[in-house]
Design a protein around this nucleic acid. Structure first.
Lengths: 104, 104
DNA sequence: TTTATATATCGTATTATTCGAATATAACGA
DNA sequence: TCGTTATATTCGAATAATACGATATATAAA
């Protein structure tokens, strides 16, 4: 009587992790997230400048990341800084891109 | 002159990893993949029985996983066994669900 | 106040995913 | 060959994701 490898009874336990992965599964968002691993803290304008993508597009991606709990925000005056907020995400990014020194 | 944390020039380097994550970002597929970590090798009927989901639905999810290189197949007579084929995926599943002994 | 700047949200057209029934294929045994 | 079982593919409808211009909000400075 061992636990089956698959089990429809707890399919719902995969909902949240799948949501997390979905939030990460877009090139722009993945780029943002890896950028935040390198840079710790980053405002929208900086990302926009680097990525050269319309502001509303970036902002929408950021809201999706925030909605999934991937990032949190810290306002500083006019700017809003984004910060990684989920350790699982860091492990996933490392799995995908390798370990890496982060700059202060 | 350090490398910027974000860089539009190599946005395309995120395409493949994003595809990989997209393939994983569905509860059924994630369940299958974690099941394959536990069980190593598994045919479609077994998954179908456990998950109680229409055959075509399972098969479609499996094709998506295969297309992304997450799994490979081994035919044995009528049955087709699915097997994990990407180490990154194992690391990701561990990040999401924790380490775990695998049977056999 | 007004103005400027940084960011968020809305509207909407386009494209992609999802599901499951129906159908097709592949391998085996009689 | 024919029938059976296991799996894959096709199709259409419903739903969700995406991009981006236009517009709204929030903060700060004049």
């Amino acid at each position: 009587m061992s636990i089956p490898a698959f089990d429809k009874q707890d399919l719902s336990q995969f909902d949240e992790p799948a949501e997390l992965l979905k939030a990460l599964s877009h090139p722009i968002r993945l780029c943002i997230v890896r950028g935040l691993m390198r840079k710790k803290k980053c405002n929208v304008s900086y990302m926009q400048e680097c990525l050269d993508i319309p502001q509303s597009t970036i902002s929408q991606h950021l809201q999706k990341l925030r909605g999934a709990g991937v990032v949190t925000t810290e306002r500083k005056g006019l700017e809003v800084n984004y910060i990684l907020a989920d350790q699982r995400v860091e492990a996933i990014v490392k799995a995908l891109f390798g370990e890496e020194e982060c700059e202060a």
